[in-house]
């Protein structure tokens, strides 16, 4: 084996994984955080140890961070449709039925 400094410089960084945890049956997986691991199997094990030490989950997903596509933060205004003047998409817009039961 080579000396430690050399060993370190040879090490390739482990990829980053995003971790999603389903806290109980019937609920969606929710993003819990991220971690580094050499492969998916190790990522799952590390995720279990890191994010579910107190029964926080019944199921875990790990996703390579670079496989996630996301919307551009700079285009907030234009990418997401403006809710302006679209109150009619909400039930509260319709007031004439107030007082009518089961509606």
């Amino acid at each position: 084996m080579s000396n430690p400094t050399e060993t370190h410089s040879k090490e390739t960084p482990w990829p980053l994984w995003e971790v999603f945890v389903r806290s109980s049956r019937g609920l969606s997986h929710v993003h819990a955080g991220s971690l580094h691991a050499p492969d998916a199997v190790m990522a799952l094990r590390n995720a279990r140890d890191l994010y579910t030490r107190r029964n926080e989950g019944v199921s875990i997903w790990v996703v390579p961070a670079d496989a996630i596509s996301s919307s551009d933060p700079d285009s907030k205004g234009s990418f997401f449709e403006s809710p302006q003047g679209k109150d009619y998409r909400h039930a509260t817009y319709y007031t004439k039925s107030e007082g009518v039961k089961h509606l």
């Binding site: 084996m1 060993t7 492969d39």
Partner: peptide
């Protein structure tokens, strides 16, 4: 601790590369 763990990190990386 970092140095003692080097062989584990190497082995895990080698295994991952082989599986891939």
């Amino acid at each position: 601790a970092h140095e003692d763990g080097a062989w584990v990190r190497e082995a895990a990386a080698a295994y991952a590369a082989k599986q891939a």
